[in-house]
Design a protein around this nucleic acid. Sequence first.
DNA 1: ACGATTCAGTACGTCAGCGCACACTGGGAA
DNA 2: TTCCCAGTGTGCGCTGACGTACTGAATCGT
Lengths: 240, 240
Amino acid sequence: MQSPPPQFSQNHLLAALPPAELERLKSHLELIHMPLGDVLCESGGRLSHVYFPTSAIISLHYILENGSSSEVAGVGNEGMLGISLFMGGENTPVWATVQTAGYCYRLKGPLLLQEFNQGGPLQRVLLRYTQALITQISQTAVCNRHHTIEQQLCRWLLLTLDRLNSQELVMTQELIASMLGVRREGITEAAGKLQQAEIIRYRRGHITVLNRAGLQGHVCECYDVVKKEFERLFHDVKKF
Amino acid sequence: MQSPPPQFSQNHLLAALPPAELERLKSHLELIHMPLGDVLCESGGRLSHVYFPTSAIISLHYILENGSSSEVAGVGNEGMLGISLFMGGENTPVWATVQTAGYCYRLKGPLLLQEFNQGGPLQRVLLRYTQALITQISQTAVCNRHHTIEQQLCRWLLLTLDRLNSQELVMTQELIASMLGVRREGITEAAGKLQQAEIIRYRRGHITVLNRAGLQGHVCECYDVVKKEFERLFHDVKKF
DNA sequence: ACGATTCAGTACGTCAGCGCACACTGGGAA
DNA sequence: TTCCCAGTGTGCGCTGACGTACTGAATCGT
């Protein structure tokens, strides 16, 4: 993966901060590379930092006693990992793993908390993001109940595409299945249909999206709801 | 419904505030009765107030284009309705309806926002609650994917029981079905099993829980996760 | 007191997704 | 080049939940 050199502004939350605010944080923002599969946080584990992805994608999921699991939300360059640090609980039952290798900026927890408690623009941006995250998780809950695997796969692909600059994602069917909390065979079947429709191409751990509009034709409304909510919440964020 | 005269402290969030803080708010807290089925907020609608239930229970649910829906979380005396007012989005895609008639205290939105922005104990309590709500929604998402209707019914009953002082709830199977986002017949079947096991008794819109421990024997882990997370987050809240 | 209405129970056939088993194959490691 | 195996494609039978339709009974309004 030859990523271009990351810019602070690639992360939408950092980009939403007033220049002076960002400038003040810059010296504390540490750039790190996150390898695929890295576990950033286990259930109940404490995060030492908060992470602002630029090219990496982090998956938030819950794991059940019997070992099965589901992603409840993803975190890419539109967001951040570690809201529990400023929300007050310090940790949560969530697992956070690296779904797509790439870069993040990170900030030490205590420092972020201190900044958050100033109540300035950073606080407003982080709270807005948390609000958007709640929508994403809620929509996932409804989607899990009512929509087919194929629809959910499309949703997941579109959300992931939006976080990448590429049309190709490195991702096995097994991995996607564990994200969505379904069988690997279920993904094989759904992906097969999309492949026949020439919407995607699958090649041993590499998915290439040939026709983004095609995906949008198969996706459930959940994608749009989440997308629009993020736009709504961050469209005018600078005004505050 | 002859509820006992509500006390501020019946709502756990109000109870978690330092006495001085609560005292200051008291004159603005308006007690209102909420009838069953009342719609407090439609998708994208703006709330004029935030609500702190004492005996009422509010259901948060998402409605899909095809009309089907699912509850993503419930709000009883452990919580509040209206987090979007201080999180910054002002509204969300959520619907809020009264699931169990009863009393709430409410506070005008702008006033709450002003208090929240002081950054004091109220802010900390509200953010902690939001964090707990996220856990509840996330667990619902996973539960929707992996657990049977019967398990989910038990979870829902237990969560509802915890918010009431009574062992009897006024609730048709149809209504429960729409909460869980399943068919009414699915609830009939699951409730039938629980009834045969003498765990509950069903009588035209009235459920009586005969054996709470029995419910806990049939419930999935999701109930405990949510319960414990609330306890953890509010156990030491006074310290802050 | 009685009819209307709402609610619970039952019985189909159908289907999406599951669990399991196994066969194939592309591509990296030696 | 060859081997090996992770990743993918299939084919079962099974089951939980769905859609639909209908019955019976309890409660409410008049």
